[in-house]
Amino acid sequence: MRVSAKVETIDRDIVLRLVGDDADRSRQFAAYAREALVEAQEVNRRATGQVPTHETFVDGRRGAALETVKPDGTIVFEFDLLNDLFEWIGLTLMQHSPVLSGRYQESHLFFADGVEVEPGATLPEAQEYSFVNAQPYARKIERGQSPMAPDGVYEAVATLASRRFSNVARVRFGYRSLPAGSIGDWAKTTNMRASQNSRNRPGDKRFEWLTRQPAVVITLR
């Protein structure tokens, strides 16, 4: 799936100003499109700190040469911004992770509507994407109980990502339940008590509370 920002270079006033035969007008249109592309790349670079990848569509044809555009046709540059956002968050979580055994750093998982997405897999369409850590002690780290991450990890990264990619998506810190793996095993055996008595009663509500993990949550604007 591609969630992208499109830069439509077609402008009827531009078309009317093109001169010469069809071949000349197509070349002029292509030159104008290249200028628009450079401007769009610079806007994205200033906004996100990098130039995102893009695909070109000329009169609806993916990857066609710009000069093949019809004088009254369209050229669209489609920037893939969402993958850049996810890559940046994943890398920044790694960089901010406290490292002792390495398990916490290696346990950042990525989900689309609560379903784990394996690294390198095609990005599915979803209402919500999230990064969640699979280690039971992730909540302690988030509370600043690791000397290597006194300000936590997930909330800090969510704040940085929100500032950097505010034009792409809504990024926020939250908690998401992760009932599988070591989190689920721990939740089934722990005697940890909550300040709210309702959460201490056996059942789904208590299990959901015990398996809630710090998360970076991303929704599309």
Rank of each mutant, 00 (worst) to 15 (best):
A47H: 07
A47R: 13
T56R: 13
F57T: 07
V58G: 07
D59G: 05
D59V: 06
D59L: 07
G60L: 07
R61S: 13
R61T: 14
R61G: 12
L66I: 12
E67F: 07
E67Y: 09
T68S: 12
V69Q: 01
K70M: 14
K70I: 06
P71S: 04
T74H: 12
E78F: 00
E78A: 15
D80H: 03
L82G: 10
F86C: 02
F86N: 02
E87F: 00
T92G: 00
L93A: 07
Q95H: 14
S97P: 06
P98A: 00
P98I: 03
L100G: 07
L100A: 11
S101W: 03
G102L: 03
Y104V: 00
Q105H: 11
Q105K: 11
E106F: 06
A112P: 01
A112Q: 06
G114I: 15
E116M: 14
E118Y: 04
P119A: 09
P124H: 02
P124M: 09
Q127G: 13
Q127T: 08
Q127D: 14
E128H: 05
S130F: 10
S130Q: 09
S130V: 12
F131Q: 05
F131K: 07
F131S: 05
F131N: 07
V132N: 07
V132S: 11
A134M: 02
Q135P: 01
Q135S: 10
R139N: 11
R139H: 04
I141R: 12
I141A: 03
R143C: 08
G144V: 08
G144F: 01
P147Q: 06
P150M: 06
G152R: 06
V153M: 11
Y154V: 04
Y154M: 12
V157M: 05
A158Q: 04
A158K: 03
T159D: 10
L160T: 13
A161F: 11
S162Q: 14
R163F: 15
R164F: 11
N167F: 15
N167K: 13
V168Y: 09
R170E: 04
F173D: 12
G174I: 06
Y175S: 05
Y175R: 13
R176M: 15
